[in-house]
Design a protein around this nucleic acid. Structure first.
Lengths: 144, 144
DNA sequence: ATGGTTGCAAACACTTTGCACATGA
DNA sequence: TCATGTGCAAAGTGTTTGCAACCAT
């Protein structure tokens, strides 16, 4: 019996009315396997290793439709570019080392309390938030 | 006796070893008067009203040096551009309405507790963080 | 006097778009 | 078959840079 560990990307695409093309299937696989949010250039090079030569424009288009359909999250880490992360992973935040560029996940976001407060006090309806931390990781602190 | 309400921009520039040019003085004044972080295009048009025609490149250069010297904070509100905010204002976060584009400040950030925890648990040295909320303001909720 | 500042034009990086061709359902 | 997806080239937007002229100190 085969255990279904990974999501079935074909079905996933079907659900959101997107055609299951090789580029899309491979991209979802790449994002699923990634340990941190990826930018378009990185996705492109990872796809190439899988034998798929996708144009940046195509990848941007995929990311936009995936993000519209909720398949990926757009991540803005104050760089001049966007990164994308597989949505199936639970929502979390990031810890960026400004020296080595490492990106670590932080889960356990208890910001909901805060959001509730904003709703009650200001009547603001929060749809999402961004919270990222920047600094130096344990290792890079030694090098300075 | 004259009460000193506003910062003396000339002195402020002097302190950080930047020359007090008309463009710089006017820009600091514009940022000080602003109720929300401004982008370069907006700064440019506000300067124009003050009779100063500054090139975007110049404004970007000013923002970079001001930000290096700690005179302004660079604000990234997940747009495709940066905004800048006068540093003398206490550190705070933002509440963005995705419908009308209004930007409200939120102060009272008790995230330090969290940062302390990250330092203790992961040995990560936080230098700064970004926290922004996106959603619908009270008013725009009615319109939907 | 002279080193920092500015304007202008060109270069850049990332992202979007138009269009013809290709392909999944 | 036919709407959808893709490659390629061009355009768009925000930002940076090189260089000569300019101006605060």
């Amino acid at each position: 019996m085969v255990v279904q560990v990974k999501h079935d990307c074909k079905i996933e695409l079907h659900k959101v009315a997107l055609k299951a093309t090789p580029a899309r299937l491979a991209t979802l696989k790449v994002l699923e396997a990634a340990s941190k949010p990826l930018d378009v250039a990185t996705i492109k090079s990872k796809l190439k290793k899988d034998g798929i030569n996708a144009d940046p424009a195509t990848i941007f288009r995929m990311m936009n439709s995936f993000s519209d359909k909720g398949l990926v999250r757009e991540i803005n880490l104050q760089e001049s570019k966007l990164r994308y992360e597989y949505s199936a992973k639970e929502d979390h935040h990031h810890l960026l080392c400004e020296s080595c560029g490492s990106i670590e996940d932080i889960s356990d976001c208890n910001i909901e309390t805060w959001e509730k407060e904003l709703r009650e006090k200001k009547g603001f309806m929060i749809k999402h938030h961004s919270l990222e931390f920047f600094g130096l990781c344990k290792n890079c602190q030694k090098l300075i």
